[in-house]
Simulated scan of single mutants.
Amino acid sequence: VKVLKDIRWKKSGDKNLMLIVIKPIGYRLTKKSKLLYRNPAYLISTDQEINLKTLVQSYIRRWEIEVGFRDQKSLMGCGQAQVREKQAVQKVPAFLSACYGMLLLAS
């Protein structure tokens, strides 16, 4: 992990940014093949006092949340319910999200 502090970017306004570059882990396709690398990961933070471990853990957890949202929308049809009552428009997505959470816990 390489950290660069006090970086300026036009859209950040007066805020100082911290750029974190996470080096990719090398891997081999076979035992005898050469070492290959993926692209590094870049994280930008406005909080310069945050612990790096906490920041990276938050990034990884956020990615899992985004995948969960995608699954709920594409697999379970969250947001596409065909209901007639006004109250059901608000309740159906919450119900589907709760069902998805129970399915994850059960698996």
Rank of each mutant, 00 (worst) to 15 (best):
L75A: 13
S97D: 03
T30C: 09
A81Y: 07
P24I: 04
P93A: 05
L96F: 15
N51A: 09
V83A: 06
L36T: 05
Y42N: 06
Y37K: 11
T30L: 04
Q90E: 12
L29N: 11
G26S: 08
V83Y: 06
I50S: 11
R28L: 04
K86W: 10
Y37C: 04
R84K: 03
I22C: 03
R8T: 08
L55S: 10
P24M: 03
M18E: 08
G101L: 07
Q48W: 04
Y27F: 03
E49F: 02
K15F: 14
K10T: 15
W63K: 02
L19N: 10
R28S: 05
C78H: 09
V21K: 08
E66W: 05
L96H: 06
A94F: 15
Y42I: 09
L35P: 07
K31D: 12
W63Y: 07
R38H: 03
P24Q: 03
Q48I: 12
K11R: 13
Q90G: 14
Y100N: 10
M76T: 02
M18D: 04
K91E: 09
D14L: 12
K34P: 13
V3Q: 00
V3F: 01
K86F: 13
D47P: 01
I65F: 07
S58R: 00
K15E: 06
E49D: 10
K73H: 12
E64I: 12
K31R: 14
S97H: 11
I44A: 09
P93F: 15
Y37M: 04
S74C: 10
I50R: 14
K32G: 15
R70S: 10
K32H: 13
I50W: 00
L105Y: 12
L52K: 09
K2N: 14
E64Y: 08
F69M: 11
K86T: 05
I50Y: 00
M18R: 07
S107H: 09
P93Q: 06
S33D: 06
L104K: 06
E49V: 15
L35W: 10
L52G: 11
T54Y: 03
Q82I: 06
M102W: 10
S97W: 15
Q82H: 11
I50D: 00
L17V: 11
S97P: 08
A88E: 09
G101A: 04
S33V: 07
K2E: 13
S12H: 12
M76I: 11
I7R: 08
K23T: 14
R38W: 00
E64S: 05
L96D: 08
